[in-house]
Design a protein around this nucleic acid. Structure first.
Length: 445
DNA sequence: TTAGGGTTAG
């Protein structure tokens, strides 16, 4: 990439207008380079754009989409200004990209303002705006716009279903999918469901508990089979995830077997399913197979899955070995989740000191998930002093989840250290953390 | 040459 770039520069194409050249030539070249950097090394895109301007080459409508998508949040507004200055702010491609980028940076109001500038009804911009609302937690706005649209396509419907999923409204997602299936748009074959639609609805089923969600997911699976939809990576992985979460391991294995193309995420879903259904050893075997037979490179999520398998299966040595190999062998830098797994791994087995050492040597501050795993272990194995040290740290974090503090308090109580237990409860109250009252629900049909 | 929706962990 850099070599091609240098070649173009040394040939002088990017620096001046040659008299008889097509005057758009430098713009086209810059656009091509910006697009290529956007894909391969997006941090350099702004530099190239600056260079373009300093060489007095005019950007056009094709310059802005990859430039905006590569840019840091802090430069979106100045680039917006540039587009305005260049008189290309009525272009739907530029406007839609701006809208998407503002929404991605949680600037919903700016996204809405940009959307209002789109001169005519544009299905792509409208769908992008629906997504902007959903990603910023405003499903009401998304629904209002969806209803107002003069026509909708499969992306409009799927974006709505997915919006409910990312906002945790799984029942609403399933209901909306049901509406979609009976709507004229679909019934009259104006809109054909695609992989993304199935993925969104399967994901909402997987996030629910109970037989009803499993049955619905199986119906969707049946529909996919009847319609002769190829089991692509996305749909296949979603099905494995659904069956794995629902405890139907055999179904998950069957889907995994018939899939022709499997990517890392597919293997991750299968490894996780095995790990969470009591087949930890098979999860680790599959991990070996993935590396050796398929030559695939495990990613961050793969390691969460295998470390979970080790933790649940009590494979301490294997787990520590895997954790140690992450950076050195696979260039995967451990993040909070991995530390959580290792602390859980050691803690469950009663290696409290080693778990504490891991926490002390973390390159960043542990969060409540890591400390919580440790505290749980301290409680089970009666390590009161260490538990207190970590518990105090958690109080300093001032999170609003009180479960773990109460756990610490009960630890003291169990050991009949009532004064400590009482002090801790007092500290909890003073730090403004509230206990969420437990509740149960009865579903009336 | 350009814009919109999707899978995997806890």
């Amino acid at each position: 990439m850099t070599q091609i770039h240098s070649l173009v520069i040394t040939n002088g194409y990017l620096n001046f207008h040659k008299p008889n050249d097509n005057k758009w030539m430098p713009t086209l070249l810059y656009n091509a380079i910006i697009r290529a950097y956007h894909v391969h090394n997006h941090k350099k895109v702004l530099d190239i754009f600056t260079q373009m301007l300093s060489n007095q080459i005019s950007p056009n409508t094709h310059t802005f989409p990859p430039l905006l998508k590569s840019s840091h949040a802090s430069v979106v507004t100045p680039i917006h200004g540039q587009a305005l200055k260049r008189g290309i702010l009525s272009d739907p491609f530029v406007l839609t990209t701006l809208l998407v980028v503002y929404a991605r940076n949680s600037r919903l109001f700016c996204a809405q303002k940009v959307f209002e500038e789109v001169p005519h009804f544009c299905i792509v911009a409208s769908n992008a705006m629906i997504n902007a609302f959903s990603m910023n937690g405003n499903m009401e706005g998304a629904l209002k716009l969806f209803r107002r649209m003069c026509y909708r396509d499969v992306v409009s419907w799927t974006t709505m279903v997915n919006g409910f999923v990312v906002n945790g409204e799984f029942y609403a997602a399933i209901r909306f999918f049901g509406m979609m299936m009976t709507h004229n748009d679909v019934v009259n074959c104006l809109v054909k469901l695609n992989e993304a639609t199935y993925v969104s609805v399967l994901s909402s089923c997987a996030n629910l508990e109970g037989k009803a969600a499993l049955d619905f997911g199986r119906q969707v699976h049946g529909y996919i089979v009847v319609k002769g939809v190829d089991l692509g990576v996305f749909v296949g992985t979603s099905l494995i995830n659904l069956y794995g979460k629902m405890g139907c391991l055999n179904y998950a294995v069957n889907v995994f077997r018939v899939m022709v193309v499997r990517e890392v995420c597919t293997w991750n879903a299968m490894i996780s399913s095995l790990a969470s259904n009591g087949r930890e050893k098979e999860a680790l075997d599959l991990f070996e197979k993935m590396k050796k037979l398929q030559g695939l490179k495990p990613n961050s999520i793969t390691f969460v899955a295998v470390l979970t398998a080790c933790s649940r299966g009590g494979f301490i040595r294997e787990g520590l070995k895997l954790f140690g190999s992450m950076s050195s062998e696979f260039q995967v830098v451990p993040i909070m989740e991995h530390y959580g797994c290792v602390v859980d791994l050691l803690g469950r087995a009663g290696h409290i000191q080693e778990a504490a050492d891991i926490i002390r040597n973390m390159p960043f501050q542990p969060d409540e998930s890591v400390l919580g795993a440790f505290l749980g272990a301290c409680r089970i194995h009666g390590a009161i002093e260490l538990g207190e040290e970590i518990g105090k740290k958690m109080l300093k974090l001032q999170t609003q989840q009180c479960g773990q503090y109460l756990l610490l308090s009960s630890m003291n109580a169990e050991k009949e250290r009532w004064d400590h237990a009482a002090d801790l409860r007092k500290e909890i109250v003073e730090s403004g953390i509230h206990k969420v009252p437990a509740f149960s629900m009865v579903h009336l049909t």
